[in-house]
Amino acid sequence: MSEISLTVNGRRVSASVEDRTLLVHFLREHLGLTGTHVGCDTSQCGACVVHVDGKAMKSCSMLAAQASGSDVITIEGIANGGDLHPVQAAFKEHHGLQCGFCTPGMIMTTVDMIARHPEGLDEATVREELEGNICRCTGYHNIVKAVLAASKTMSKASKGKAKKAA
């Protein structure tokens, strides 16, 4: 067993887990955060993407023990109370989902992608960046639309903030 201690969505959690426990199982089964999904056994689908210390990672491919000491954000941790995160709002607005199974991973990947591309995104970059997220329903078209829209809103919002601050 491993004694682990980490922050999940801003809350400190400590637990005793079997060493082999994957981070995704810790989140879902120990913490009840079932928004993070498992879609494959091969580390390819991205349904399990969360942020660990500010970077998108596949929680099915790391142990909970490896994340001890880290800061983890899941899909449950990005909305601001009742207000959807701009990426969530864009997926809703542009019908970036059908069954919704891939959506938590898509959204966590998108939040990370937008943060790494403050200069903005184009369609080719979005498609390349979504390499590690598989969707069986949408054909990606509306997902790409949603990502591009969210990237625009978020860069406007941050420019607005910068103006206010100045």
Partner: peptide, 9 residues
Amino acid sequence: IGDPAVRHR
């Protein structure tokens, strides 16, 4: 190499 999440780790 791989995808962004793979490259992060």
